[in-house]
């Protein structure tokens, strides 16, 4: 927790995918902080507690300077006398927050997040890994089922006119449009990643109608959702050819 907001980080047990979630302080009704605070929490326990709240309940998260627990108070908005309190004890992960240095990416595409979710799901049916190529003209997501020889491919062509891009899902044009593709293209780039982790990342589509895919040769793939209250990033370690 910092004066800007709350940043969450988590990694899968195999250290293949790291998720980073920033929630700006402006997304909270009130946000007070005396000094920066870093907590390690068991995500299952936190999720179990937060699921007890209904959509319109008020949740208050509190932790003191040398606290060992995060206290979550859940209040019914129209019945403020009904409050339930839950403690989530900290755990010792033996590490603090991981600072990820910014790198200059070679290529970035932005596509509709629902289309991206469909792509990830369908290619996952075919193979455990997929190749992503971004070239000047567009992007290509390819998966090959080595058993049957079946190949699946999704192609995104670069928008001829950036104005073709529309900001509402209802107006989605027939062809997938890559928004501002030219602005972030420096050189042709390709990466191979596991479809399983791409499926995980693509399931966050409800957060934002658009998703960005950023690549640099031999660097983790970055899948990023930007939204008003913050940003959600998935870093996925690449596969290399045998």
């Amino acid at each position: 927790c910092s004066k800007e907001g709350i940043m969450l980080q988590g990694m899968d047990e195999f250290h293949i995918s790291l998720v980073e979630f920033f929630l700006s302080k402006r997304s909270f009704e009130s946000y007070a902080l005396c000094h920066d605070l870093c907590m390690s929490l068991p995500i299952d326990s936190l999720a179990t507690v937060l699921k007890k709240a209904n959509d319109d309940d008020v949740c208050t998260l509190k932790a003191g300077h040398k606290a060992k627990v995060l206290t979550v108070a859940i209040e019914t908005r129209d019945q403020p006398w009904l409050v339930s309190k839950h403690d989530v004890p900290f755990i010792d992960l033996g590490s603090e927050y991981l600072v990820i240095s910014r790198i200059p990416y070679d290529a970035k595409i932005t596509v509709w997040s629902t289309r991206f979710a469909r792509l990830a799901h369908e290619l996952h049916q075919l193979s455990g890994s997929l190749d992503i190529q971004i070239i000047h003209e567009g992007a290509r997501f390819t998966a090959l089922d080595e058993g049957s020889g079946k190949k699946g491919c999704f192609i995104f062509r670069r928008a001829k006119v950036v104005d073709e891009y529309r900001d509402s899902e209802d107006d989605e044009p027939a062809g997938a449009i890559i928004h501002e593709f030219h602005r972030y293209f420096h050189k042709a780039t390709s990466l191979r990643v596991s479809t399983k982790y791409l499926v995980h990342a693509s399931k966050r589509a409800p957060l934002s109608s658009k998703v960005s895919v950023l690549m640099k040769e031999d660097q983790p793939l970055l899948v990023q959702y930007d939204f008003y209250e913050g940003v959600l990033k998935f870093y996925i370690a690449p596969r290399i050819a045998d």
Partner: peptide, 14 residues
């Protein structure tokens, strides 16, 4: 499929 790398190669893991 290729060999899966881990993030330890890219990030400075504690």
């Amino acid at each position: 499929m290729g060999r899966q790398q881990t993030l330890g190669k890219f990030f400075d893991m504690p």
